[in-house]
Amino acid sequence: MNWREWQARQAVVELGDRFLSYVDLGTGRPVVMLHGIPTWSFLWSALAPALALTHRVLVPDLLGYGYSDRRDCFDRSVSRQAEVVDAWMDRLGVVDAVVVAHDVGGGVAQHLAVRFPRRVGRLCLMDSVCYDAWPLELMLQLGHPGAVRKLSAEAVQRLLKLGMRRGGFARAPPDGVIEGLLAPYATEVGKVSLVRNAVSLNTNHTLEVAPRLGHLGVPVLILWGEDDGFLPPKYGERLAWDIPGARYVKVPGAKHFVMWDAPHMVATELFRFLGVEAPAEAVERASASLPPP
C-alpha cells in the first residue's frame, strides 16, 4: 500500500479545536498503534492490515504529525499526546486496547499506561524513547525555532532521508516507504509542524513516568532492533529490568525501524503477545512488501 492509499483510508475525529486522522481496520479486540518522529501512521501500513485479520486495529496520526492537526498553535509533548489519545479512544468508544508503540509513540504509550491505566490492556514498546535516551541530536537541531528559517522543506526532507537511510534501516525498505514516511512534511506547513514536534521532545517527560513503570500491572513486550543506533538496545534491556514480567526480544539484524527490517519476526512476536495464533496470511501480508534480501 503506498502512502496515498493509506491516507485515503484515514477517518477523522474532532476533539475540541483539534482533530486527529486515523485508520480503523478489522474487528475484534482493539489494538492501537502509535508511531514516532519523523513519521506518521503510515509507519504501520504493512503490519496493521496483518493484525487486522484478527483484531480491530486503530492507527492514529499523533497531534502535529501526518494528517492530524498540524496548525502552529498547540503543545505536542508526549504528555499532551497521551491526553489526546485518551480523548480519542473515548470518542471512539474504545475502553482499553493493546497498545503497540514505536519511538516517540512509545513515550506517549508510557504516559498513557501510567496516567490512564484503564486504556492499556497490554503494552508493546518497540525501539521506544525512554529515560534519558532521547532526543537525538538531529532532532534537537531540527527543533530549534531558527530551523524554520534556516532550512527549506526540501532541505529537511533531504536531511531526514539521509538520516533514515543511514541509521534507521538495516536494509533498504520497499520503494516508496521512506518517501511515504516523510510525505506529510514535504510542504512548508509540514516542515514547520515537524520542527514544532521536534522541539516538543523532552527527556523530562519520560523520566517523569520512569519510576512508575514498575507498577504497570499489564503484560509488556519489548521489541528492539539489535543494531538500533538511534536508541541503543541497552535502553530496551533497562525497560525490561524495570517492568516486572516484561518480555524482552532483541530482533537480530534490525535497526530502528524494526517493523520494516524484520516484519516476519515482528508480526510473529505480536501475534504471540496478542495470544492468538498468527494466521499464515497475516505474517505473509506483513512481509509482502519486503524486497528480496
Binding site: Q7, A8, Q10, V12, S21, Y67
Partner: peptide, 10 residues
Amino acid sequence: VTLGPSQRFH
C-alpha cells in the same frame, strides 16, 4: 473522486 473521510475534511 474517491477521497477518504480525512482527505475530504482537509
